[in-house]
Amino acid sequence: MSKDVEAGIRGGFSAGDYLDQPPAPFFDTNELSRWSFYRAIIAEFIATLLFLYVGVLTVIGNQRQSSASACGGVGVLGIAWAFGGTIFVLVYCTAGISGGHINPAVTFGLFMGRKVSLVRAVLYIAAQCLGAICGCGLVKLLKKANFNDLGGGATELADGFSPGAGLAAEIIGTFVLVYTVFSATDPKRKARDSHVPVLAPLPIGFAVFVVNLATIPVTGAGINPARSFGSAVMFNKHKAWDNHWIFWAGPFIGAAMAAIYHEFVLRGGAAKTLRSFRSSSI
């Protein structure tokens, strides 16, 4: 029996007693023959549908109540809680099935960190975007008049901010979220802090909450291309599509930066790669 297994059985993991998963294959077509793969895609679709349903319905409800009463509506704080709390619940429910991405930027960041294959990443993103459209469609079906009159919950660049400022807000916000995902699911951290229970969905949900608080006044807090795309498709007015590129470019850039920072700087991937090049040249 290996030392790692013995330590695990005794419950005495040290900082060095952990097993990293090998990098995911870049292009793994074998996944297409497994039911678990399609089950994961379905889970991503349903989770993103529910996420957009709760989030966009909260945004529209807040706007409706605010327009009816000066003291009405849950405000930015309530919207941030709705998005962050829903992510906490859905990541908790789907983490064991699909990993609980529910966000193309998270999927892209994990692909950059070699945690998922290209095949899985592409189909996850497709399922997430379709789920987002269906979730917003449900909201529109239930509250069609409010949906059309109050902007469909679409993310838009706020007045007074330049596209550059909006892009920066999306990059930084997504960096915080994806960096939290990497940190919360890091096997080395779990081994080092094995005496402390770690519930990964909790910090991820709080990351969404705090980023929404900071970013809603600037861009409406996209930090999730599927969320922005779904609401833009269902609302389908010019303003929803103005500067829409920000809500794809920003999250993808932020996710890539978070993956590089965590995997190659904090986890020493760059140093390991350099040593492997040196050893192979000898």
Rank of each mutant, 00 (worst) to 15 (best):
R120M: 09
K115D: 00
C71I: 12
K143T: 06
G8S: 12
A259M: 02
G205I: 07
D193H: 11
G269K: 12
I125R: 04
R275C: 03
N146I: 02
S67M: 08
I246P: 00
S67C: 06
S66I: 05
F161A: 13
P104W: 00
I253G: 10
G137A: 09
A165S: 11
V89R: 14
F111K: 03
F108D: 12
G12V: 06
A255V: 06
C71N: 15
L19D: 05
A121N: 00
N236T: 03
C129D: 09
V178N: 13
A240R: 05
C71W: 09
I216E: 04
P197A: 15
F13C: 06
G72F: 03
C129R: 03
H244C: 12
F37W: 13
A271R: 14
L150F: 06
K144H: 15
Y261S: 09
S14H: 12
V198F: 11
A240W: 06
N224V: 02
K143C: 00
L213C: 13
Q63G: 03
K188R: 15
I42K: 06
L130K: 07
F147G: 13
K143V: 01
G152A: 02
T107L: 02
C134R: 04
R39I: 05
T94D: 12
S14R: 15
F88E: 06
I46V: 15
A145F: 11
G222E: 13
V181P: 01
T215C: 15
I102A: 08
N103G: 11
K115N: 04
R34M: 08
M234G: 01
Q63M: 07
G222H: 10
F252L: 15
F13G: 01
V139W: 00
V218G: 10
V116E: 01
C71T: 12
A221H: 05
I79W: 00
G73L: 09
L274A: 14
T180L: 09
V119Q: 13
Y179L: 15
P217E: 13
D159C: 01
I42S: 12
T86K: 08
I97N: 04
Y179T: 07
G85H: 12
G137N: 06
E31D: 10
I60Y: 02
A82R: 00
G220P: 05
G100V: 07
